[in-house]
Structure formats: C-alpha cells, structure tokens
Design a protein around this nucleic acid. Structure first.
Lengths: 213, 213
DNA sequence: AATTACTAACTGACCAGTCAGTTATTTAAC
DNA sequence: GTTAAATAACTGACTGGTCAGTTAGTAATT
C-alpha cells in the first residue's frame, strides 16, 4: 500500500485484487486533506494509477467510496486496540497510558489522523456515516477507556468518579490534538512538542485520578 | 440579526445598510453546518431574503463572503474577551474560569461554535484564511490564557510550569467540546452534561495547577 | 426624471457518473 | 508451442446536471 503506481510502468495491467485497496489508499490521502466535496474523483483515479472509469468498477459512487475509506481504514485500528486491552496485564493507569500512546502513534502521527477530522467536517453532510462512525469507532474506543476506569475504581487504584465523564476528559485533549495537527497546526507559527503534550496530559490526569495514600 | 425575512413582506425594499449583515448572518448558518463547498449561494441568498445577484453587490465572491463571515463574527468576541481580562480583578484561577465559562456561553452554546469547526474543516482549502484565523483569533485567545498562567506562577498562586504547554492543555477539552457539539454530537446516542463537563475540567485542572500548601 | 438597490434569467465551467471501444489475459483449439 | 477466439479489466471521451458568477432589465427611492 501507499504506492500510487504499479511496479511495472511499461503499460497498464489487469489487477482486479489490488485495485480497491489502491483506490481507497489514494482517496484517503485526498479526502483527509481536502474534504469530500473538494476532492475530485479524477484526482483520486490519477493518484491510484487508474482511470476514473475503473473507480466505478469497484465503487458505486463517490459517496460509497467515501464510506469505504472510513470503514476500511479505521475499524481495523479499533479492533487492534480492543485486542490489546483484552490481552493486557497490569494496572489500569498503565493500560490507559498504553492505549493513549498507541493511538497517538498509529493514528495521531500518521495520515489516519485525518479520519477524525474528516468525520467532524462531514458529519452533517453524511448523517448515516456519522452514525456508523459513532457506533463502530467512537463508542467502542470510548468504551475501552470507560471499562478501564471502572475497573480502576473498583480495585481502589482510582478515586471514586463518574467513569463516563472521566473518560471524556481523558480522551478530549488527545483527540483534539490529532484534529488540530491535521488542520490548523499546519499553518500555526507556534509549534509545540506533541510527545511532551501527551506525556504532560497523562501525568496531570493520573495525578488527579490516582488514589493518593 | 438572526431574522431571515424583513419585517415588511408586502414587497422588497432597498436596504443598503442592512444587507451585508443579513447576508453574513444567513451565510454563517449554512457554512457552519454544511461547510464551504456544500453551501450554495442561492440558499444563502434565499435565507437572507434577497436574490443571488444582491449577494454579489456586497461581496465579490463566495470565498470573500466566507472570509467576512469568519472575520466579522469571531474577531469581536476575541476583543470582548481581551477587554474582560484587562478589566478583571481577582485571582488568576478565577480569571481563567471566567474566560472559559464566558467562551462556553458565548461560543460553545451558540451557533458561533460552528466557526472553530469550520476552520478546522476548511483550513487546508483556505490557507490564507487559516493564517488569519490563527493570527487574529487563536493566538490572541491563547495568549490571554498564557499570560494569566504566567502571572499566576509569578505570584505563587500556581505551581511552576510551562505556561504555553499548560495553556494548551487547559484549552483543548473546551475547544474540543465545542467542535464535537457542532458535528458528531448531533448524532451521538450517548449524550452528556456540557456544564458538568466544563465544571469538572476546571476542577481537575486547578487541582493539578494550584499551589498546594 | 434620475438614480441605484435589487432581481431573475442567463452563461460557462466544472465534475460525477456513463459507455462504447481497447487491450491484457485466459481458454481452447490445433 | 503457436495461434485464435472469448473474456473481462480498463480507458477516456462524452453527457447532463449543478452552481458560481454576470448582466440586462425592473422597481423603489430621491
């Protein structure tokens, strides 16, 4: 993935299996930067090394391509995170840090971070997709955090608190940083140290949350 | 403002003075929900109670209307906030709480909250406007917080910390909540108490920041 | 009567989506 | 192993609808 041209440039090839993934890959690059409307299917096709007609062999419309980009790219990441949480052995604060850092590395630092930005931008224009995203991505990710905080409270690792509200406050600065980085940060003169930001947030957060002896 | 039709519906009137503000008002409503590309000038005109031609009497292009919406709507709010901060007498933690609650009431709870969302969505398509927004809104707002934290640290009210990084962490959950509310929250089944969220964030934050005796 | 705010029909560019035709590949026949 | 017919992946020119922007004309105001 992430190569827009085939390895043999002599002439075009018939590559039924590879096309959908390549088209989604190219579309992701354009959608996350320009948004849905400003992305031209001709550009997606060119970037994927095919003609526009080919895009329509594999996707029934621009909108369905958009849906597939969101689904195929981000859902697997949620599944990986769920698996990591399920396999994890250790304290809940360690698990939360792991999930946060992991999400930052995999989503925040890569072009995948464009997906949350994209969903925020386009939610009103694609309500169905917004609901899908909330259901299959947001609420599942949020749930991982809520469950971990609940366990922490039960075991006495964390202070008593509303786990749902606490999860929201835990996630907000991270999600915001990702969205910011993929939009306005590009033009911001005042740069900042992302890893330090994340680290600082984790420290502050657990300072408040951890049961002080 | 915020009325889309004139008070006398018998026939149209010539109202040179009122038109620009009415058009900006209508454009704001549509831009913040649909984004730049998906907003049709015919719809803006209809909402403002004029024809599309009239829009072009007062704005030279769709893009310049977009710029004016952002500039005219949000810059005055920053100025008001700066004034409040300048006039304020009291502790820095009280000032920070005041600024936050005020921003939440004026921007977060109203359709003005659509502007940050809009800027995040369209930054890549309008780099010049993004720079304007960062320069005239974001950095000024951020500065208020940074200066307040600096004063707090100097006076001993706050612990020693990096004021710029701390300001970022202070603002992130609030700005995120605004953006979220104007986008995905509309379709989210799990609702939450906004005021409680803000209050909780303030408490957590000052818990960590205030000098403990 | 002159001025000008305003209208609405118009234009032209752009682009999502289509389709008739082209070419790589597979199958089958010799 | 070579050639030919059949298949299906792929192309790119085309179409029709949409919409930003224009302008000739209308009507409120002075």
């Amino acid at each position: 993935m992430h190569t827009s041209r085939s390895n043999c440039d002599c002439k075009w090839r018939r590559r039924k299996e590879a096309r959908p993934a390549e088209i989604i890959d190219a579309a992701l690059d354009l959608f996350v930067v320009k948004g849905f409307n400003a992305t031209k299917l001709d550009d997606v096709a060119r970037k994927a090394g095919v003609s526009k007609g080919t895009v329509y062999l594999y996707f029934e419309s621009k909108e369905s391509l958009f849906r597939e980009v969101v689904k195929q790219i981000i859902v697997p990441e949620v599944e990986k995170a769920e698996q990591k949480a399920a396999e994890f052995v250790g304290s809940q604060s360690e698990l939360l840090k792991l999930l946060m850092v992991n999400w930052w590395e995999v989503v925040g630092k890569t072009r995948l971070g464009g997906i949350p930005k994209l969903m925020v931008s386009e939610a009103a224009n694609f309500p169905e997709l917004a609901e899908f995203y909330l259901d299959k991505v947001v609420s599942r990710a949020r749930n991982l955090v809520v469950e971990s905080i609940k366990k922490g409270v039960e075991s006495g690792e964390f202070k008593a608190c509303d786990p749902v509200a606490t999860a929201r406050l835990f996630l907000a600065p991270v999600v915001f940083a990702v969205i910011w980085d993929k939009s306005l940060a590009t033009y911001d003169k005042e740069d900042y140290d992302r890893d330090e930001y994340i680290r600082m947030h984790a420290n502050n957060f657990f300072d408040g949350l951890l049961q002080t002896k």
